[in-house]
Computed example of a mutant assay.
Amino acid sequence: MTRTVYLNGDWLPETAAKISIFDRGFLFADAVYEVTAVIGGRLIDYHGHAARLQRSTAELGIPCGLDPEALLAVHREIVRRNDLREGLIYLQISRGVADRDFAYPNGAEPTLVLFTQSKPVLENPRVAAGITIALVPDQRWTRRDIKTVQLLPASMAKMEALRRGADDAWLVEDGFITEGSAATAHIVTQAGSLVTRGLSSALLHGITRASLLDIARSEGIPVEERAFTPDEAKAAAEAFISSATNFVLPVTRIDGTPVGDGRPGPISMRLRQRYLEVRLADAV
């Protein structure tokens, strides 16, 4: 079946949705995006994603075009129109259409797009075995706290990891791990503390990350928000990634070195279970 997509206020078959070649998202990657998971037809961690979207658009001076209530209504409607039970909603806002110029145009109308992807996100087959990670230099720009569509360096890192026989990449800068190609990186120390890098412009402020840290603290798991090195990650008891699409996904090898006993660890699996329990309970 052809999906129904949202484009600037219109509901269209995906084959009929067109964007100008002069859109600044296409010419300059002058756009931001969000991805929200859907389980049972409901939105997971939606309010965190909506708040981050507002922050990203404000940092770039791109108007959203919809107030918070209308934006939520569009998300619910695209779920309904596509009968989406489980999967993802991708949203992108660009600065809009203007003749090519490095300077921002005055008065451009933003381009707002949403589409769905139906896929199993709850029963992820990779959870039981975990994933393997390759360490790759971080070559991205320095405002990674803004969720822009400038994803080519992350895509290149992912492809390098695949070339080396790994499932994904963790990015390394100045001797420390920043984050994954499309996820937050976490380790659990041998003493049982959850370690993840503190928030800054060096990494995306993960919505799933924030939820997990709150849950970890409520579960009595010590939390350290600090940078960690590749050697520290390889010597950890456990490691995992978090994201809107994977929730919690264990990491079992880093550059060929087993993490812990080379199997998904108990704290990682406990946090995944508790995250799903908490977020499904308050899904909208």
Rank of each mutant, 00 (worst) to 15 (best):
R3I: 10
R3D: 08
T4R: 01
T15L: 09
A17W: 01
D23N: 08
G25C: 08
A31E: 06
Y33F: 12
E34V: 15
A37W: 00
G40C: 00
G41L: 00
Y46N: 01
A51V: 07
L53D: 10
L53V: 09
R55Y: 10
A58P: 02
I62Q: 00
D67V: 03
D67K: 14
L71E: 08
R76V: 03
V79C: 05
R81I: 00
G87E: 00
I93K: 00
V97H: 09
R100E: 03
G107H: 07
V113Q: 14
F115C: 11
Q117S: 15
P125W: 13
L135A: 02
V136M: 08
V136I: 15
D145S: 12
I146E: 01
I146V: 12
A154D: 06
K158M: 03
M159L: 11
A161W: 02
L162C: 08
L162P: 06
L162H: 12
R164I: 00
G165N: 05
A166E: 03
T178Q: 06
E179G: 15
E179Y: 02
T184G: 03
H186N: 13
T189A: 09
T189E: 07
Q190W: 09
T196R: 10
H205T: 07
S211L: 06
L213A: 05
A216T: 03
E219P: 12
P222C: 05
V223H: 05
V223T: 06
T229C: 02
P230D: 06
K234D: 01
F240E: 03
F247D: 10
P258Q: 08
D261C: 10
P266W: 10
D282P: 10
